[in-house]
Design a protein around this nucleic acid. Structure first.
Lengths: 205, 205, 205, 205
DNA sequence: GATGAATGAGAATTCATTCAT
DNA sequence: CATGAATGAATTCTCATTCAT
C-alpha cells in the first residue's frame, strides 16, 4: 500500500490495458486482411503508432496472433468444458454448445475469424500445436455428442456423423465472417434459428 | 493424321497444356499454403522449374490467381445459369444447385478453396471486382430460390431467408477444405446427405 | 535557445536534411551512370546504407527521380517567371534567361543532367507528365522572346526562330554535362561568353 | 558462278541484309528508349520476331550497339578525314565539317542519338574504347580548326576556343534528337542556318 | 512508451541469354 | 531462321525486426 506499490500496480494495469488494446486492434486487422497479408506496419497504423513501437509490447508478429488465439481458445474451452460437464442429454448439450459458440463469436469475432482462416497454416509451426489439439478436442466433443444422440434415438441414424460434425463446425465458425453485433439479428436469435435449421431442416412440414 | 498435322496439333496442345498444368500446380499450392503465404518460388518448385521461368507464362503471381479464379467462376456460372434457366420448382432448383456445387468442388477443389479463403482480401483490388459481382449474384440467386420456396409453401416461413442463404453458402463451399475425391464418401453421396440434412434436419422424427 | 528547443529544431532539420542528403546522392549517381543503368543498391552504397533502407525514405527508385526533377523544375520556373514578368526588352530578357540558366546548372548540375538525358524516356510515364509541360512552356517562353526580338528589330529575321530556340535550349542544358564548379571558367564567365557567341557569332569582324 | 556458289552468295547477301535490317530496328529502339532501358525483347518485338531469335544474328545486346556505333563512326571519320585532308582554310573547313555533320545526322540519326546519349556510360567498358578515341579525335580536330581560325584572324580571339568547341560539339549532335528527315527544314538548310548562327550570331546588325 | 532510421533476409519480378526442336 | 521454354543472375521492393535516442 506504499505509494511505490500503488504506482507499480497502476503502471502494470495500464500496461496490461494497452497491451489488450493493441491486441484487439491487431486482431481486427489480421481478421480483415488475413494474417500473412497483414504487415506489422498496418497493425501499428491502425493503433496510431509506428511499426517499431509495437516491439516494445510484443516479441513478434507471431506472438501477437499467438496471444489472440490462445486467449480466445482458453475462454472457449472453459465454456465448452462447463457445458459438457453439466450432464445434459445429447440434444440439450447440442443446444448449449451451439448457443455458446455464437456467444463466443459475438465476444471474439476477430479471433474466431483468424482461427477459422489461419489455423491450417499456423498449425504447421510447433508453437501453435495447441491449435491442432483444439481441433482434435473439438472433433471428439462433437462426435461424442452426435453419437450419443444417435444412440439415444434423438438424432437420425441415416446420416454420417462425421459429415454432420463438419457441417456444424464449418457453419458455426464461418458465421464470424458476416456477423455484426449491430446487425438485424442478435447472436441469440441467430443461434436459435440456426439450431432449428440444423435440427428440423428448412422444409415446411 | 499426317505427321505434320499431328505435330502442329500436339504443339498447340502442349502450349495450352503447359499453361493449364502450371495453373493447376499453382492452384494446389495456393490452396494448401494460402495465397499470400505462398511464394512464387514454391509454386515454381512444385512445377519443377525455376522461379523466374513462371514469368514466361504469367505476368505476375496475381495474374495466376486471377486466371485460376476466373476460369472456375466462368464455369460455375455457366452451370448455375443452366440450372436456374431450366424452369424447375424451388425445391428441385435447390437440389440441382447443391448437387452442382459439390460437383464443382470435385472438379475445382483448389480453386474453390482459394475462392473461399482469399476472396475477401483479393476483392479489395479492383482487378478482382468480378469476385464481388459473383458474390452478389450468388446471393441473389439463392435468395430468389429460397423466397420462391417460402411463397410456394415448400420452405418454412419462420426462418430468416438471409440466414439460410448464408448457412448454405458457407457450408457448401467450405466442404472444399476437407473433401478428398478419394475419400470414403463420393461427391454425390455428400451432396445427397447434405441436402437431406438441410431440408429435413438431423432430428429423428 | 534552451537545449530542448535546440533539440527539436535539430531533429526536424535532420529529418528534412536526411531526405535532401539522400536525394543529392541519388541525383549524383543517376546523373553519372544514367537513371536506368543505376541500381538502387548503387545509390544506397553511395549513401552508405543498405539498399532496402532507401525505401524507408522513398517509395521507389522512380519517386526519387521524380522528386529530384520536380524540385529542380519548380525552382527553375520560379526564376524564369520572375524574369519574364519583369517587363524587360527582348535582348535583356534573353540575357537574363541565359544567365539564370547557367546559375541553375551551377546549383542543380545533377538534376539538369538527368533532365537532359532522361526526360524523353521518363515522359512516357504519365507520372512525369510535368516534364512535357515544362518542355512546352520552355518552348513557348523562348519563342516569345525570340519572336519579340525579331519584331523589335533586335534579332535577325533571316533565321528560323524555331531553329534558334532548339539551338539555345540544347546548348544551354548540355553544358551541365561538362560544367565543373571548380573548373577554369565560372558559371558567370561561361554565361557571358556564351551570350556573346550566340548574339554576335564567333567571326572576327 | 556454279549454282552452289550463286546460292551461297545470295544467302550471304540475304543474311547481311537481314542483319542490317535488324540493326536498323535495334538502333531505332535504342535511340528512342535508351540503350539500357531497352530490353532485347523490345528490339525483337519491333523486328517482329521473338527475343531469343535475335541471338541467331548477334552475340549479345552489347554487340548490337557496338556494331551500330562502330559502323557510324567508321563512316563519320572517313568523311571528316577527307575534309581535313583537303587543305582548306579554317573557315571553309568549319563550313564543310558542320555541313557533313548534319548530313551524317540525316543518314545515321538513331546511331547519332545513341552515340550522344550512351557514349559516356558505354565507354566505361573496354570494348567501347574506340568511343573515347573518337571523342578525343573530335576534340583535337575542332580545336585545331578553331585555333587556326583564330591565328588567321578569321575567328574572334576573345572567346575560349575550348568553350566554342563544346558549344559546337553539343549543338551539332543534339540536333539528332529533334531532326526529322521529313521536317520543314532539310539537313542542308539546317546546316546553313546553323553555320550563320554560329559565325555571325543572331543579332541584327 | 514511442520515434526515426536503419538492417538484412527474402520476396516478386526482370531480363539477357541458351538451347532443343 | 525462328520458336517456345527455360535458366539464373541481378534488380527492385517488402517487411519483420532492432536499436539509439
Amino acid at each position: 500500500m506504499s505509494p511505490r506499490r500503488r504506482d507499480s500496480e497502476s503502471t502494470a494495469t495500464a500496461r496490461a490495458g494497452r497491451r489488450a488494446e493493441l491486441l484487439a486492434t491487431a486482431a481486427e486487422v489480421f481478421a480483415s486482411r488475413g494474417y500473412s497479408a497483414t504487415t506489422v506496419r498496418e497493425v501499428a497504423d491502425a493503433a496510431g503508432i509506428l511499426g517499431g513501437s509495437l516491439y516494445y509490447h510484443f516479441d513478434s508478429k507471431e506472438s501477437m496472433v499467438d496471444e489472440i488465439l490462445s486467449t480466445f481458445l482458453t475462454d472457449l474451452w472453459a465454456s465448452y468444458d462447463r457445458i459438457t460437464a453439466a450432464g445434459l442429454g445429447a440434444r440439450e448439450t447440442f443446444h448449449a454448445l451451439i448457443a455458446e459458440s455464437f456467444r463466443m463469436i459475438d465476444l471474439y469475432r476477430p479471433a474466431v475469424m483468424i482461427y477459422q482462416n489461419e489455423s491450417r497454416h499456423l498449425a504447421a509451426n510447433p508453437r501453435f500445436g495447441y491449435l491442432l489439439d483444439s481441433m482434435r478436442r473439438f472433433r471428439e466433443m462433437w462426435l461424442s455428442v452426435l453419437d450419443r444422440g444417435v444412440l439415444d434415438g434423438e438424432f437420425r441414424a441415416d446420416l454420417d456423423t462425421g459429415l454432420i460434425y463438419r457441417f456444424i463446425r464449418d457453419t458455426v465458425w464461418v458465421a464470424a465472417s458476416w456477423y455484426r453485433s449491430d446487425g438485424a439479428l442478435s447472436a441469440d436469435e441467430i443461434a436459435r434459428q440456426y439450431i432449428v435449421m440444423v435440427l428440423e431442416g428448412i422444409l415446411e412440414t
